[in-house]
Write a protein that binds this DNA or RNA. Structure first.
Lengths: 360, 360
DNA sequence: GAGCCTAACTGAAGCGCTTCAGTAGCCGCT
DNA sequence: AGCGGCTACTGAAGCGCTTCAGTTAGGCTC
């Protein structure tokens, strides 16, 4: 358009100015040991003078065949994602690990709960992909496969040839269920995450639970029911409410529904601390005391769990460790490592004051 | 390393296979109108057959001189950032706008509250930068300037030559202050965000307030004090507690400190809803009723504000609109638009049940 | 002083794509 | 028959950088 507006300086510009070859200027930036310090100083000074901002990242990427960024694929949009502090914490830890490896985080949020659009993935400048909690058969994963990018899947269905980091969801849920079982509860309700990416929330039928497209939700339900079964509780008698995303607001709504069933459950198993906090709130609004009239168990052990009122009994997973491992794994894949065995992170029960034996 | 492991197919591979020129294959992907549908179909089919995943994003970027991503620079790490739902909401709206423009979001979280490292910025593959709430004189901004990238600054000090989106922080804070003034409060405390990127929190001296490096915090304090002054309240008599980041936890701690001053403030002005929720909690723990014994005002009007107990009087800003505008602006800068006048978004007082006249 | 080694620098070949100025062929018009 | 104007496709010049195989000069050794 405009009459050749002062072309940006490139490596050549600088090389010409200093009177050296382009390779030398490149070395000045990337391999300082390859040239004499004096020459390097001259080059850097000339670059400064010419307003050369250093090697262009894109050109460098093309030449080196690595972009230096890690793409993070998210099932949902950012706002629902971050309404869950567990994700924030994990992502923060992931991001700092990634950043310390001199790489940036390319965030591809989901659209309509289906994960990112495949075209977004196709155009993403990245050399490794982390998929977090996408529904089964997310189209974005096809795009990843097509590009043959190394993939780390987290909390998510198995994808052949990818590395995997998982939390022992089933085990954790079972722990939670057994905890309330041991306390003597026999009427228990489940407050679950979304089951399928169709934006629905509300009471969920067993059939819907069967066909759930989110692995995490499926596994946790299975764990809950398995744990409860050990106390003779019939899975079909367990009411389940599905919250589309894990925020307190829906937790409250769901808990309200669960606590108005009859017979009223005396314990609520919640798939996240946020949902559990919503449940506590709902209980309070219904005039039910926690834990003497209703027990509530969360999942994740986010900071909010320990300072809620009452403090929340929950299943702890080490979110910081999780983020770090994911990032490490991704960085190692970049360096050509094989996916290897899936990493499964352990969980533990953290008993606090939101659970107690059921009312007599 | 390995003996020439099946080289990835490129445009040339496909062109050779189909027997057309490379340009034609490129057109098949980018300008379907430039070739006959039949040929295009043949090309796409051949690509499929060869496992060609479509034009390489990096090479494309180099050729077109645009990366297709928007870098988002954050003052803090992700976890503290997302502990503020206001940011999540805004970022979500920003991300979807960016995504619908077929661009991705490159997230550069801050390190040590100073914003991203300048090297990260230097290497970032992006063609436009959004800086959110960095401290004054953040080193990352120098890197942006050096690369001559278009810049949108948000909630942040003015940077020459950049576009700007702002919320009327001073005005909003003044609104909040006048609201409690009108209700009759004369002893008021302020629960503020961090003042400077040094990780400190706790009671802040007027001197520290003076030298604050975060514009938002500075402006809101100024607004509060201006509003209070209209009711004859001496700025020096107003206790201020600084929460390093805006999370409930620190809000509670700060509020507790404020509410144990003597004379005890009858109203608390909080810089975010999260802080305000923490304050309400602290009040409850101290056995003080909200609003009859102490009034609390938030800022942002996040969803949590309306369903807290009691519902929170707050200053509303339209976060979704904010995100969208930022993204639009960034995309327009990419298309060569001039930065133009700063956009200032308005705020309004939303009176709810957390404020009332002071106890007699 | 011949031979060898190393440090310092260079030349040129890519990396995979877009784009623009052509060219070739064809159709329709006069 | 000649010409203009299409449509469909091609060639080649970049985009800005990295990297590797050299080359050169200087220093060291015996």
């Amino acid at each position: 358009m405009s009459p050749d507006r002062a072309r940006r300086p490139t490596l050549d510009t600088v090389a010409l100015e200093v009177g050296v070859s382009r390779a030398t200027v490149s070395n000045a930036y990337n391999r300082p040991d390859q040239l004499s310090p004096q020459l390097r100083d001259r080059i850097i000074a000339a670059a400064e003078r010419l307003g050369y901002p250093g090697p262009d990242p894109t050109a460098r990427s093309l030449a080196t065949q690595r972009t230096g960024s890690v793409a993070f694929l998210l099932g949902q949009g950012l706002s629902s994602a971050f309404s869950d502090p567990a994700l924030s914490i994990m992502l923060d830890s992931l991001a700092s690990t990634v950043d310390s490896g001199d790489r940036a985080l390319l965030l591809l949020p989901g659209v309509n709960d289906l994960g990112p659009r495949p075209e977004s993935v196709a155009r993403a400048q990245t050399d490794v992909v982390v998929a977090y909690s996408l529904p089964d058969r997310a189209p974005a994963l096809d795009a990843v496969r097509q590009r043959k990018l190394p993939l780390v899947v987290v909390d998510q269905p198995v994808v052949p040839g990818s590395a995997r980091v998982e939390v022992d969801d089933t085990g954790g849920a079972e722990l939670a269920a057994r905890h309330v079982g041991e306390l003597g509860h026999r009427r228990v309700g489940i407050l679950a995450f979304g089951l399928s990416p169709d934006g629905k929330h509300g009471p969920a039928s067993p059939a819907r639970v069967q066909s759930a497209r989110y692995r995490v939700t499926r596994d946790r339900v299975a764990g809950y029911l398995r744990g409860l079964a050990q106390f003779g509780i019939d899975p079909d008698s367990v009411p389940l409410w599905e919250a589309r995303c894990g925020d307190q607001h829906l937790g409250r709504e769901g808990a309200r529904w669960l606590m108005t069933r009859s017979p009223r459950p005396t314990a609520l198993l919640c798939m996240s601390d946020e949902l559990a906090l919503g449940a506590i709130r709902a209980a309070r609004e219904l005039g039910l005391s926690v834990p003497s009239e209703v027990s509530v168990v969360g999942f994740d052990d986010t900071p909010g769990a320990s300072w809620s009122d009452p403090p929340l009994t929950t299943i702890r997973q080490d979110l910081v460790d999780k983020g770090r491992r994911i990032a490490d794994l991704a960085l190692r894949l970049l360096d050509g490592a094989r996916p290897g065995q899936p990493t499964t992170l352990s969980v533990e029960l953290v008993p606090r004051a939101s659970t107690a034996p059921p009312p007599a």
